[in-house]
């Protein structure tokens, strides 16, 4: 896919000055620190946008269980990091609820990969995200957010609990801390460079 057709170039644009957007997804369960991490790293104030999506949903609460088409609006947090003169990295905090997986398809397309945040007190919440990225072949790293008691479990125990495949990076971070959050992104990009090549 070669894009940026000539007629859409900015007037007076210099060759080689093409802008390069890239994106990383921040996933995990509700309240695990996705928004906190995005805000710790973003150079713009906290922003949220709404995403419309139409889904074929089966009304499991309805006696009739009639499939119907619904439009749902989901709020999505995002942040921005200017990497260099032409490259801008967007971080997207993906909606935590697994029933919004269909939205991840659009977000995951073309993504560098994902950081799946985990709260060790509620590991079940991250399985939907891990399964999703594994199944779609999207590179990801697991980031154990430094909630209380996170230090009581060593990496091996955590990997076992999450059923992580060998080679899937596991990093410890504090989502409030830009330094450790940035390190998680770096490990992800390294992982993405190795992935399937």
């Amino acid at each position: 896919m070669d894009y940026a057709p000539a007629e859409h170039r900015p007037a007076g644009a210099r060759p080689g000055a093409e802008l390069l957007p890239v994106k990383i997804l921040i996933a995990g369960g509700f309240g695990v620190g996705k928004t906190t991490l995005v805000h710790a790293l973003s150079e713009i104030p906290p922003l949220s946008t709404e995403q419309d999506m139409t889904s074929l949903s089966v009304g499991i609460d309805d006696a009739e269980a009639v499939p119907d088409k619904r439009t749902t609006t989901v709020a999505m947090d995002f942040g921005r990091i200017t990497v260099d003169q032409n490259m801008i990295l967007y971080l997207f905090g993906t909606p935590g609820q697994s029933r919004f997986w269909f939205m991840w398809d659009e977000l995951a397309r073309g993504a560098v990969g994902a950081v799946v945040l985990v709260d060790l007190r509620r590991v079940d919440d991250c399985f939907a995200a891990i399964d999703y990225f594994e199944n779609r072949g999207v590179p990801f790293v697991v980031g154990v957010n430094g909630f209380p008691h996170a230090d009581e479990f060593d990496d091996e125990t955590v990997r076992d609990a999450l059923v992580l495949k060998p080679g899937c990076p596991l990093v410890r971070l504090d989502a409030r801390d830009p330094g450790s959050s940035l390190r998680a992104l770096i490990v992800l990009v390294e992982r993405s460079l190795q992935h399937g090549r």
């Binding site: 896919m1 894009y3 940026a4 093409e18 802008l19 390069l20 957007p21 890239v22 994106k23 990497v83 260099d84 490259m87 990295l89 397309r109 073309g110 993504a111 560098v112 770096i186 990009v189 390294e190 993405s192 460079l193 992935h195 399937g196 090549r197």
Partner: peptide, 20 residues
């Protein structure tokens, strides 16, 4: 300005290196 992705739908290697 659209993202530069390879035939596999993933960012091109040179982009990842530059990002890193």
């Amino acid at each position: 300005h659209l993202p530069l992705v390879g035939p596999d739908g993933r960012p091109r290697r040179e982009l990842l290196e530059r990002l890193l």
